[in-house]
């Protein structure tokens, strides 16, 4: 038998099973495991400074003014928070959501959004950055940072995604990405502005 023929025959798998495989099986994780996650999350929360960085895990945080150089790239040295995460997707011409237990890491959240919306694997998330309009000052050799009051989230994706967004129903798909990327993590944080950028 040829491998191509077997590949074809596997395509005749039961349609119910195939449809069921559109969503991953529910984790049958023990409650002890969940408790361990919760405990770890609490520890992270208590460590205030760490908490702040962990909210932006994998995200570059920077100030809007060009003169402000402060950046936090926080993926390497902080624990990754996890939790129920709303992943928005388009179904029957409307945006709906599914809850998944995920690490609050942009690549993981984006991968879940891609999966829920059947986006091909060549579409990539390049970066997510959050900027604010805070200012840095220096007086008498002492540097000070004044937090801004306006935040902008910029999501940069590979240009292949544009084809999806330009197609029929693309507006809803784009909105589902925005809702997903701006909605996870700290419930008290929502950027004031959202920008989508295509990588060249």
């Amino acid at each position: 038998m040829k491998k191509e023929r077997l590949f074809e025959l596997l395509g005749e798998a039961d349609e119910q099973a195939v449809t069921a495989a559109m969503t991953p099986p529910k984790k049958s994780g023990t409650s002890a495991k969940r408790l361990a996650f919760a405990a770890a999350a609490c520890i992270v929360l208590i460590a205030g400074a760490v908490f702040l960085r962990q909210q932006f895990n994998g995200i570059i945080v920077e100030n809007l003014p060009a003169g402000s150089e402060e950046q936090y790239s926080s993926q390497a040295d902080t624990a990754v928070a996890q939790g129920d995460t709303e992943i928005y997707y388009v179904q029957n011409g409307e945006i709906v959501s599914a809850t998944e237990w995920l690490s609050w890491e942009p690549q993981e959240v984006f991968a879940a959004w891609k999966r829920q919306n059947s986006i091909a694997h060549d579409v990539r998330l390049i970066s997510v950055s959050i900027t604010d309009n805070g200012t840095d000052t220096e007086s008498g050799g002492v540097a000070a940072h004044t937090a801004g009051d306006r935040t902008v989230m910029t999501v940069t994706v590979s240009r292949e995604l544009r084809e999806y967004f330009d197609g029929e129903g693309g507006d809803l798909l784009e909105q589902s990405l925005q809702k997903t990327m701006t909605g996870y993590g700290d419930p008290n944080f929502t950027p004031d502005e959202y920008r989508l950028v295509y990588d060249n």
């Binding site: 395509g11 798998a13 195939v18 069921a20 879940a112």
Partner: peptide
């Protein structure tokens, strides 16, 4: 396929029906 566990079935079908990459399957489950 009916004899497989839910997780084995999911992984098998994602790979050989949906033709997902190993990495994508790993992330999803």
């Amino acid at each position: 396929i009916g004899t497989l566990s839910e997780e084995q079935r999911y992984i098998f079908l994602r790979r050989y029906w949906y033709c997902d990459s190993i990495g994508d399957i790993a992330k999803s489950c």
